[in-house]
Write a protein that binds this DNA or RNA. Structure first.
Length: 201
DNA sequence: CCGCAGATCATCT
DNA sequence: GATGATCTGCGGA
């Protein structure tokens, strides 16, 4: 289990989003180690990206951690779910990368229980699902990705990486079309693609 | 298989 | 009081 070092997070946001595909997301819990390969990410490019929480700059308490050093953990609540991000870029450059899906590796019995005994394909194929499966909560807000109990380690080689528009940001103007979503080609745990409402010209 | 409505609550106005 | 970087169940094809 080799934890990915602090320096890794200094990559430019889009390169980091791509480099995260295939890494191992690990959570050491009282019930044992829960882990999965990251198979899908989305980049959010700071104050100029209409889809980012940090669009327009420093405004609310929720996004404060996005303005800190790269490698911080940014969690937030969406309806009843927790979503989890990797903070990227330097201090006062509030970029982040959303982890959208993982492929289950260790602790599968616990994950199945956390996901209400659903079929394996549905354990972690979405940002709210994977946090529930791995027991990730708002308690991790502001922690670091290179220190236990929640961290990222070296994972597997990926066969290929695809890109496309981000999901669930229909009201974000031109940003709807930016190809900031990355996933491992043909991996069955990637969340389902849904075409944007307004197709690109 | 596909699309849509409702859930449900922390966060922000 | 309004709003989601979502998920699930339900109804129809």
């Amino acid at each position: 289990m080799r934890i990915v070092p602090k320096e890794f997070y200094e990559l430019p946001t889009l390169e980091l989003a791509r480099a995260l595909i295939g890494k191992l997301l690990v959570h050491d819990t009282p019930e044992g180690r829960l882990s999965g390969y990251i198979v899908e990410t989305e980049a959010y490019m700071g104050p100029l990206d209409q889809a980012a929480h940090s669009f327009g700059g420093r405004k609310t308490k929720r996004t404060e951690v996005m303005f800190r050093e790269p490698g911080h953990i940014y969690t937030y609540q969406m309806h009843t779910h927790t979503l989890i991000n990797v903070v990227a870029e330097d201090v006062d450059e509030p970029h982040a990368i959303l982890i959208r899906a993982v492929e289950p590796v260790e602790g599968q019995t616990v994950m199945q229980a956390n996901r209400n005994q659903l079929p394996k394909k549905q354990w972690t194929n979405g940002p709210g699902k994977l946090t529930k499966a791995l027991g990730i909560t708002m308690a991790h807000y502001g922690e670091l990705w290179y220190e236990p109990p929640l961290y990222i380690a070296e994972g597997k080689e990926v066969s290929g990486i695809s890109t496309g528009p981000r999901i669930g940001i229909d009201n974000s103007g031109e940003a709807v079309h930016y190809p900031y979503r990355f996933w491992e080609t043909d991996n069955p745990f990637v969340s389902k693609y849904r075409a944007p409402k307004t197709p690109p010209k």
